[in-house]
């Protein structure tokens, strides 16, 4: 599975400054990857370009070995009618019921199944939303801050589970948590703070690609986090 962007430019309709200007970047899957960068650098915009939700102004975006891209984001809601269980069962394809059952257990949403979506906490809503995406057929799943309201142990458990359950799929995880992306990603694609001309490159930093709760030594993790933050522009250059 490959994604290639060449000289990609994009400006939001009505905007003056481009989000991207001549961006060239590529990704080769499968695996768990992340986009990291501060608010407004274009992580979600790049995700929306990849899933063809929006079209680039110029440049090329090509994909190989990808027939289905899904993009899940934090603001999504389930319809207000019916219970969460009804909705989840309704969108689970044939033969995926056991997977749904495992996901309900891993995401610990069993207690939500009889409730309406509006009656859930923010964290529960996030977990229900990611569950319904994971029971779909996909080649690439972009997860845009979908676990933003979930507590850290649950987040770690879910990320480790999806890495072990879907080894042949590609995930792009968008997060503001440098530690998390450093721990779990094969590669972290850091979008630096943009200028008036927009972002034109993406820095790739290898992650620890952790598959177990206890992994790399803390020093190595610290080093990765530092590299990611530095690439994003939050660490002042050494004098």
């Amino acid at each position: 599975m490959e994604i290639h962007c060449r000289n990609l430019s994009y400006t939001y309709p009505g905007g003056t400054d481009p989000v991207f200007h001549g961006l060239t970047w590529s990704l080769t899957g499968p695996g768990f990857f992340s986009f990291f960068g501060f608010s407004g650098v274009g992580k979600s915009t790049l995700a929306r370009l990849i899933c063809k939700d929006i079209k680039p102004e110029s440049g090329q975006l090509t994909m190989k070995g990808v027939s289905r891209v899904l993009y899940a984001h934090n603001a999504e809601r389930l319809p207000g009618w019916g219970s969460v269980g009804d909705h989840l069962r309704g969108v689970t394809g044939r033969g995926r019921e056991p997977l749904l059952k495992d996901l309900i257990e891993t995401c610990r949403i069993g207690s939500c199944m009889e409730k309406g979506f509006n009656g859930l906490s923010m964290g529960q809503k996030n977990r229900v939303n990611i569950t319904r995406y994971l029971v779909q057929n996909f080649d690439l799943l972009i997860l845009d801050e979908v676990l933003a309201n979930v507590d850290e142990p649950a987040r770690n458990r879910i990320l480790l589970s999806l890495k072990s359950w879907f080894p042949d799929k590609t995930f792009v995880y968008i997060s503001h948590n440098a530690l998390e992306v450093a721990r779990f990603s094969r590669s972290v694609f850091v979008l630096p703070q943009g200028t008036d001309q927009g972002v034109d490159f993406v820095r790739e930093i290898s992650g620890l690609d952790q598959t177990r709760q206890r992994g790399a030594p803390p020093e190595l993790l610290q080093q990765k986090v530092y590299s990611i933050l530095k690439a994003a522009g939050s660490v002042l250059p050494e004098s």
Partner: peptide
Amino acid sequence: DEVEHFYRSTGR
């Protein structure tokens, strides 16, 4: 969009 997005992207 917050509700329709999932169904649109999964073809439902």
